[in-house]
Design a protein around this nucleic acid. Structure first.
Lengths: 196, 196
DNA sequence: ACCTGAACACCGTTCAAGT
DNA sequence: ACCTGAACACCGTTCAAGT
């Protein structure tokens, strides 16, 4: 038995998340998966919330890649889509990340990345930060909803007309629509600023 | 000892929520407050989630009042502010409602109300529903964040520069800014539609 | 119809003691 | 420094049995 590293703990936690979901990601289950007593985890992490914060950081790692697009609106859209993809890549990923972000238990620079992009749209720093948060709330809220629907649907708990399969507009298109609403709002705001 | 009514259970639940928070709103604590065995609650509600859904319905009751404003944008803004106020009126209200809405365990017509208002802006039904959801995600996300910050702050767990007190822009102003971003996006979209 | 008693199968967290 | 063993103080949920 090797020693327990923070990284190994996070890795095992992600595996449980993917295979069994957030509800089953308990300290005891995680300890069992690592062949260790539950108390051992508390030498590496002060509590469960902090551990989940570290899992969130891992999930959000793809956000640190620089955006490819040139224009700010396309860059912001690219980032939003990448965030959604990162969340959807793990079972209950959106719920976990939303909770960690709200509790400020992630060290990921997502906020800063969105803010910088909003600033390049021509918004002053304070407004850019607000605009960034607004987009973040939207992406998190939307994806939590989308993912919980997928979940309920595969559990057969949704009424027929709420099934994503019978949905005439797919989730990606719906996501892009809401996103454009924002980008349009930002554009209108900067236009107003440059040409009053 | 009177008999247990669904209404009395919900009322007691709201009281615990307000006094002790969502984490302390357990079936056992609720049963104790009602002078009843924990199992008794399961005659009235199939499970905790459903009970929390009923609490959410109660919290969202103020949303059923018709909006006073004339113009759609002002009506949408009024509704958004009223929703935020309803959430802030109860400790952890935003977190609870966000969870119930995501899990589709509320019978409240908030979605429909927002959708109807978006339709009166000139958006076709399908787009209005998407726009309504988008505004909903924003209000929920924003308010969850705002309320969790208030919480952390009163617990003295935030770094100084993140305190709402030292925040140069207060929470209501920030909220209104993000909201305007949307309304601007909707306006831009309907303008584009009416004058292509 | 409505509720109790008592159990089942869990939780997160702490901490003396071991190595 | 890192982990075990064992406990503490809880959970949500079920269900025979009572009234």
């Amino acid at each position: 038995m090797v020693q327990l590293h923070r990284g190994a703990v996070v890795e095992a936690a992600v595996a449980i998340l993917d295979d069994y979901g957030l509800a089953d990601l308990t300290m005891r289950r995680l300890a069992t998966a690592l062949d260790v007593a539950p108390g051992a985890l508390y030498w590496h992490f002060p509590n469960k919330q902090t551990l989940l914060g570290a899992v969130t950081d891992r999930i959000l790692a793809p956000m640190e890649q620089p955006a490819a697009e040139d224009h700010w609106a396309e860059r912001l859209a690219e980032l939003a889509h990448r965030l959604r993809d990162a969340l959807l890549a793990h079972r209950d990923g959106a719920e976990l990340v939303a909770a960690s972000v709200a509790a400020r238990l992630t060290a990921s620079p997502v906020r800063e990345i969105f803010t910088a992009t909003a600033q390049s749209a021509g918004l002053p720093a304070a407004e850019a930060a607000l605009a960034a948060d607004t987009v973040l709330y939207y992406v998190l809220g939307y994806t939590v909803d989308e993912q919980s629907r997928m979940h309920m649907d595969s559990a057969g708990a949704l009424p027929e007309d709420a099934s994503p399969l019978s949905d005439p507009v797919d989730a990606s298109t719906r996501f892009a629509f809401g996103l454009r609403l924002f980008l349009g709002g930002i554009t209108a705001r900067t236009a107003l600023r440059n040409d009053p």
